[in-house]
């Protein structure tokens, strides 16, 4: 069942002050709904400005949405008035993009993990904590002597492993991985991802995998949500969405990707990218994609499309389908 984590109509606008009297908003997330099931990996894919990172942070409980709700196992845990109650704090953990800023530079690795362990399990003795730290560090493929080091003494890949270890230390149920390999050297990415996937598989976790890389989506996700300018334009089973995309933006994304994917991935030079994405501060009326869409017509300029099911486990928000 896909109801471990359900987000309904999430909106988040960030204010920008143009002058004392005029305030504009960056519509980072503008009505996104998504659901995540048990033992499931969902890809959240989009380019810069799509709002995927903001949505990820809202789902993790780091940012409060302006409207909309998030339900965990049927219970509402996040809405515009409050954020995650402490008993669910540990259920959802996040791994961040930049390994250089996700670890406190003034703490040794041991203490970073010890703090995390202690925040969930109070009353452990010092040796018990250290024991758990070492066990955890081995699980992510590092050696015991790594825990005595400072973050700046580790490589990017090693730091990300520590970040993974920290997220796991509180026994979460859901992981949100926000572009976790984008800042790493290409040669290191595969190792980190394979490690993460193994852990997710072994522990039976669910994961929301935020990325801009279609290749990774194809490789590791069960379902995928495509975001454009704050909205989810297509959502469903990964194979269905990537071999038979319905939304023109998804088609554009797939036709522009250069990654080598084994399988019948959609590719059509007629849907090659064109035009610049509009600014999220002043999105066009009607459908957001109208400025670049090859199928655009009058209807698209006035009405906003909503997600509807076009086949089993395949949802699209487009007026021209």
């Amino acid at each position: 069942m896909s109801d471990l984590l359900v987000a309904v109509d999430i909106r988040k606008y960030f204010p920008i002050e143009i002058s004392l009297f005029k305030k504009l908003f960056v519509r980072a997330v503008d009505g996104a709904s998504i659901n995540l099931g048990e033992r499931e990996v969902i890809g959240l894919v989009g380019e810069s400005g799509s709002g995927k990172s903001t949505l990820g942070r809202i789902l993790a409980g780091l940012i409060r949405p302006d409207s909309g709700s998030v339900y965990f196992n049927g219970e509402e845990i996040i809405n515009s008035r409050r954020t995650i109650p402490s008993k669910y704090r540990y259920a959802i953990q996040m791994i961040f993009q930049n390994p250089d800023t996700s670890l406190d530079p003034r703490m040794i690795i041991h203490d970073i993990l010890a703090d995390a362990i202690r925040s969930r399990s109070k009353g452990l003795s010092r040796s018990e904590v250290t024991e758990r730290v070492i066990k955890l560090i081995r699980q992510v493929g590092l050696r015991e002597d790594h825990v005595y080091k400072y973050p700046h003494e580790l490589s990017g890949g090693e730091k990300q492993r520590v970040a993974i270890a920290r997220a796991l230390s509180v026994d979460p149920i859901i992981l949100i991985a926000d572009e976790i390999v984008s800042a790493l050297d290409v040669s290191v990415r595969a190792q980190i991802l394979n490690l993460l996937l193994e852990i997710v598989e072994n522990r039976g976790l669910s994961m929301i995998f935020i990325t801009h890389d279609i290749g990774l989506v194809w490789s590791i996700t069960d379902r995928v949500a495509v975001m454009y300018l704050g909205k989810i334009v297509e959502f469903g089973d990964t194979e269905k969405v990537l071999t038979n995309p319905m939304h023109p933006y998804t088609k554009m994304l797939l036709s522009s990707t250069t990654s080598i994917l084994i399988g019948k991935i959609f590719k059509d030079p007629r849907f090659r990218a064109r035009g610049e994405p509009p600014s999220p501060i002043d999105p066009p009326k009607g459908c957001r994609f109208s400025t670049r869409c090859p199928l655009v017509d009058k209807e698209c300029l006035f009405n906003e499309p909503i997600l509807r099911e076009v086949e089993n486990d395949h949802f699209v928000a487009c007026l021209k389908i």
């Binding site: 290409v186 040669s187 290191v188 990415r189 595969a190 190792q191 991802l193 394979n194 996937l197 290749g215 990774l216 194809w218 490789s219 590791i220 194979e239 990654s259 080598i260 994917l261 084994i262 399988g263």
Partner: peptide, 20 residues
């Protein structure tokens, strides 16, 4: 190199062992 850039459905990602 080609192998490490190839993505297959639901399978492990390949990286060239060792380092530059």
């Amino acid at each position: 190199l080609l192998r490490s850039l190839t993505y297959e459905r639901k399978s492990k990602l390949y990286s060239i062992p060792g380092s530059i």
